[in-house]
């Protein structure tokens, strides 16, 4: 056994993760489909190409760190960890069950989960602390934090955004899954966060924008971030909420909703058609 998934094209891996998400959510009869599906390419790019990690040694000190600040997208995180070999894929069926390591929101008792999260807005501060810790320990590793665009409404995000450039933390990479929809509706209606790129520029970050469903673009942006010294990078990934399942796309109704058996089959069929196209 080599590294599971390492040789597969990232786009196909992303759709694998989507199928796993749909199966997991249907089985659990709980969870957040929309924000999990929008982040599939981001997670695929990070866990199968960008990050220096070793599933056989999840606590390897020199590994890159990952924080899912938008913790409700846990299903796609678990799918990526399972597919990458941090734990058996069958374990996904325990999602949200009593005593499971796969909690509704990520818990660091789970192999591969570097930080507990769930209450929005907290991950970037923790990532900043990790990056400071890596520097103190002279470990050359990076910290990736994935946030949602709705999450940018939390004030703590901007406290962290203000602080990271002060410390010149070029090892810190924030990725915004900008699917433009939150629980109650369009982010632009609920509480506008635009212009996002300009805000981070004003806070002295290196700002990159990508199509968040183009894995190669995400990988390239992460590489470009590595070349920038003395400044943290934020990658604004433009995505579609519910991406890959037609009836879940671009609607807040699938932020958090139950996937029935019928809808699961419909979703899986669509995702298989994507695969062979």
């Amino acid at each position: 056994m080599g590294d599971p998934g390492r040789d597969e094209p990232l786009a196909e891996l992303a759709d694998d993760l989507r199928r796993m998400v749909v199966e997991t959510l249907c089985h659990a009869q709980a969870g957040h489909p929309g924000g999990s599906l929008s982040a599939a390419e981001i997670l695929a790019a990070l866990f199968f190409s960008v990050m220096r990690i070793d599933p056989r040694h999840p606590d390897w000190e020199a590994r890159d760190r990952f924080i899912l600040s938008k913790g409700h997208a846990a299903p796609v995180y678990y799918a990526a960890l399972a597919r990458r070999g941090f734990f058996p894929e069958e374990m996904l069926q325990t999602y949200d069950e009593l005593d499971s390591l796969l909690q509704g929101h990520p818990d660091m008792r789970c192999p591969g989960v570097d930080m507990t999260s769930g209450s929005l807005g907290q991950g970037l501060s923790v990532g900043l602390g990790m990056a400071l810790g890596l520097r103190l320990k002279a470990i050359d590793a990076r910290v990736f934090v994935v946030l949602g665009d709705g999450e940018l409404q939390e004030g703590q995000v901007w406290e962290a955004a203000m602080a990271a450039p002060k410390f010149g933390l070029d090892s810190l990479v924030a990725i915004i899954d900008d699917n433009q929809i939150q629980l109650m509706g369009d982010t632009a209606t609920i509480m506008p966060v635009e212009p996002i790129a300009e805000k981070w520029l004003a806070f002295n970050w290196n700002v990159l924008e990508v199509d968040g469903h183009d894995p190669a673009a995400i990988v390239a942006a992460c590489a470009a971030a590595q070349a920038v010294r003395g400044r943290p990078t934020v990658i604004l990934a433009h995505t579609v909420k519910g991406k890959g399942v037609s009836f879940m796309e671009n609607t807040h109704k699938w932020h958090s909703a139950l996937v029935t058996e019928d809808l699961k089959e419909k979703a899986l069929t669509e995702l298989c058609v994507r695969e062979v196209r």
């Binding site: 907290q122 991950g123 970037l124 501060s125 900043l128 602390g129 320990k137 962290a160 602080a163 410390f167």
Partner: peptide, 21 residues
């Protein structure tokens, strides 16, 4: 580490440092 008048951020940063040992 001087974090400024931002207690939430300071607390999160402390958590990250604790994760790092």
């Amino acid at each position: 580490f001087q974090i400024g008048i931002a207690e939430a951020n300071m607390t999160g940063i402390a958590a990250g440092l604790a994760v790092m040992g």
